[in-house]
Amino acid sequence: MSAWISQFFASYSNIIDLCLLNSLVGYGLFLALSANMFSLATGGFMALGAYCSVYCTMELGFPFAPAVFAGALLAALGAAAIGAPVLRLRGDYFMLATFAFTEVIRVIALNWDSVTGGAIGIFSIPRHTETWHLALAVAVVIYVAYTLRRSYFGRAIAAVKQDDVVAQSMGVNVFMHRLSLFIASGFICGAAGALAAHLNYFIGPGDFGLVRSVDALTYPILGGVNALAGPLIGAIFTTLLPEALRFSNQLREILMGALVVAIVLYLPGGAMSVFKLRWFGVRAGETKLAAATEQAQS
């Protein structure tokens, strides 16, 4: 039995690592989305974390853990720096500003040859990241998200998401709440970038662009932004499925695209909403009705 298990892990450890890494990023976005921040800054945060940690281990000779921490911290600082001005922008402008941030970081990575290796990237990064590091990181993030959701902080965030005027009127400092979640999201994505860099032997500017940022959003949105397990389910699904579909690369892309479209169209609350639908079958309809009557009356 144990032989079977060790063999299982040996043959699938890469894919397990990838699932965990994507879940970690997914939770970073989950925090941002929970306060209605549709952030495309993920690529930028991951790049900051990855390049900074690699510089720490390869140039400065840091041990692995402080290097990852330094990378995450730099990304968090980046989030704090751009968060203050950017969070004042309305929804779509926020999204586009975070997109511009990711592109600025990517272009800097492309050109700061002495630190980032430019377009070629950095090769032969020592492989320090182990599966348990990733699992631990995901577990910690899930614990934090779970505990916060059940606290006054989580209630305030839920209010910010649904109606920030109400939240303010109840004494919630909406700006600070969103900023702190944005910084937390930056920290987590930065840590994920650092862990990814020490997992893959290689980083290059192409790893951290718009596609990376949108992929990261896909995990929690597909899994469900209201369920705690959403990002995990979404990340595992989107990571495993391409592996399971052993077609040509192109055909796989087509099928994956079609599946994502189908999920978005037929399970708009994300995959986790299946369970909710079953348990509270009537609820969704009733809420809509109530909202409608409220509008009619106001």
Partner: peptide
């Protein structure tokens, strides 16, 4: 956003 990006990927594939 997510769906249109998925559509883009399908078309690239």
């Amino acid at each position: 956003l997510v769906a249109s990006l998925a559509l883009a990927r399908m078309m690239i594939g």
